[in-house]
Each structure stands twice: as C-alpha cells, then as structure tokens.
C-alpha cells in the first residue's frame, strides 16, 4: 500500500470514531434520569405545560432520544451548538472566542516540553547510569507524579509573589502575538508542559539507549565518524520517531491539563470556560467543548499517525 493510500484510509477511519464521539457526548447528557426541563419544572411550579413543551422544543429535548440526537448532530455539523441558557449567546461564538488562548497555552506547553525533554533525554542516554542520569530520571519521575494544580500554585507562589518576576493576572487585553504575552505564558506553560516533558524525556532515554546499542551505530563509530555526528545525525533522528508516536497521547494530556491549569492561572481559555459551564450547568457549552476536545484529539492522532508513517520506512501499511 502506498503512503497516499494509507493516508486516505486512515483519514476515512476517523469517521466512525467521530460518530462514536458524538454519541458518547450526547448520550452522557441525555440518558441520565431527568433532563434539564424536568428539573426546571420540579424547581419552579409556575412553569405551565405549554411553557414546558416550548422549553423542550427550544432546547431540543422533545421526541425520542434518537430524534433528539439527529436534531442536535445536524445542527452541530453546521456549527450550531445552540445557545447559552443564561445569556442566550451563541455557544459557538463562546468556543471560538476562547479557543485561541487555549491553543497558545497548549503550544507553549508543547514547546517547553520539547525544549527541556529532548536534550535531557539525550544527556541521560549518553550518560546512562551515572549521577546525571539518575538525577534526571528522578526529576522525570517527579514530573509525572506531581499534581499539576499543585505545581502551578507553587510556581505562582515562588516566581510571581516572592520574586515578582511574572504577572499574577492572566492576560486580558494583550494581543496573543505580542511579545509581552511571553511573560504571561511562561508559568502556565511550564505547568502544563511538565508532565509531557517528563514523559518525552523517559521515552527519549529508552529509545536512545536502544538505538545506541544497534549495529549501525557501532559501524558508524568504526568508520571514524565523530561521536557528535553519530548521535545527532543518526541516533537522534531515529529516536525522535518514537517521540512522534507519543505526540497524540501528549496532546490529549495537554488538553486535559489545560482544564486544571487554566483554572489555577485564571487563564481565559476553553478549559476555564468548561469548568465555569459545569458549575453553571450550561449544558450546551459543556457539550460543545467536550465534542470539540474529542474531535481535536482524533485529529491529533491522525496527524501523528501520518507523520509517523511518513518518517518510519519500516512501517507496513496493512
């Protein structure tokens, strides 16, 4: 199978998964006992039967479940996620307006993870089992064990409050592309990227160690290539492929991490909106963000698979 056919096939394969994602999203909110309207009526006896029916109609809650699902999904497909119940604003507007902040944070987290983890992984693999390796392995283990909300709190405490190096407030009127954004991004970016950095470092170390034991490395060394060239040109390249396999997983973890980190840092992104919406029972917003997250992770998986397939000649497109 050619790479092109693989890409096509792989792309098509996400359709049923996307369908499944939409079913889970919808199902979680609609198969639970007592839909929003029932609850509203229970709380507010002044609501008349006609009003109740109208509410159901408006919130797409009338008719059998599958019909409600079809209604909902057909609206979603044209980008209509309904209205925020309290303010009557378009949910899609809310999601789009918050999205850039989250993407900026996620990208920064990713960048931080790569910048820290790859050199650390190389260092640990080359210096396997000496003190530096032990320390960096310990740090990596700490990195995946530390609760990110606690890490965020500690970073704010030390770097913003004690040392006064970074702002406490989240950015509000700064343009996302302006240079001062960097100051705002550093602490939440580090918080969100730490777990990923630790994971990447561990994978880098393992795969580099593996690669370094391979025959071609011995051969290259025997040829008299400088160690630096051997590592950077050959070993590193092959090891990075294993990082690509991680990419989708880590993207999912960064997406989830953004929920907690945005709350800790008061960051005006989708994650905070998600928690706000949960607290205010804004069901349409919660559903939209859930669905959005699912689609995003699926796409990240797709891209990672394609990149991996393109990079690794050993893979069979079966």
């Amino acid at each position: 199978m050619s790479l092109q056919r693989f890409i096509l096939k792989r792309t098509l394969s996400i359709i049923p998964i996307m369908f499944g994602v939409s079913v889970i999203t919808f199902g979680m909110f609609h198969l639970t006992p007592g839909d929003p309207v029932t609850q509203l009526v229970a709380l507010n006896p002044d609501v008349s039967a006609a009003e109740e029916a109208a509410l159901r109609e408006r919130w797409g809650l009338s008719g059998p479940v599958w019909e409600q699902y079809l209604d909902w999904i057909s609206n979603v497909l044209v980008g209509d996620f309904g209205l925020e119940l309290q303010t009557g604003r378009e949910v899609s507007d809310i999601v789009w307006s918050r999205l850039p902040e989250t993407i900026a944070l996620g990208l920064f987290g990713w960048a931080f993870a790569l910048v820290i983890a790859i050199p650390a992984g190389i260092y640990a693999a080359i210096n396997k089992d000496n003190l530096g390796d032990t320390i960096s392995r310990f740090l990596a283990l700490s990195g995946i064990s530390i609760p990110n909300f606690w890490l965020g709190l500690m970073l704010i405490l030390i770097f913003s409050l004690y040392l006064g190096l970074f702002p406490v407030l989240a950015p509000s009127r700064q343009s996302l592309l302006s240079p001062e954004m960097l100051w705002y991004l550093i602490l939440p970016g580090i918080t969100i990227g730490t777990a990923s950095a630790a994971s990447i470092m561990r994978v880098m170390r393992t795969s580099m160690t593996e690669e370094l034991n391979k025959e071609y490395v011995t051969a290259a060394r025997a040829k008299g290539l400088p160690e630096r060239t051997v590592i950077l040109k050959h070993v590193l390249r092959n090891s990075l492929i294993s990082v690509v396999t991680l990419a989708a997983t880590l993207t999912a973890s960064i997406v989830a991490g953004s929920v907690v980190v945005e709350v800790v840092f008061n960051w005006p992104g989708l994650g905070r909106e998600f928690i706000d919406a949960i607290n205010q029972r804004e069901i349409n917003v919660v559903m939209a963000i859930t669905l959005f997250t699912g689609f995003f992770v699926i796409l990240a998986n797709l891209v990672a698979d394609i990149v991996y397939a393109a990079l690794d000649p050993r893979i069979r497109y079966d």
Binding site: V21, A252, A256, V259, F274, I275, T293, V297, N301
Partner: peptide, 12 residues
C-alpha cells in the same frame, strides 16, 4: 472512541 476523550474530561 473512548480514547478520543481525555480521561479527566470524562470524569469531570
């Protein structure tokens, strides 16, 4: 399909 959602989001 389940893997498309981060676990924390589902739990939330």
């Amino acid at each position: 399909t389940i893997f498309a959602f981060p676990g924390l989001i589902l739990a939330l």
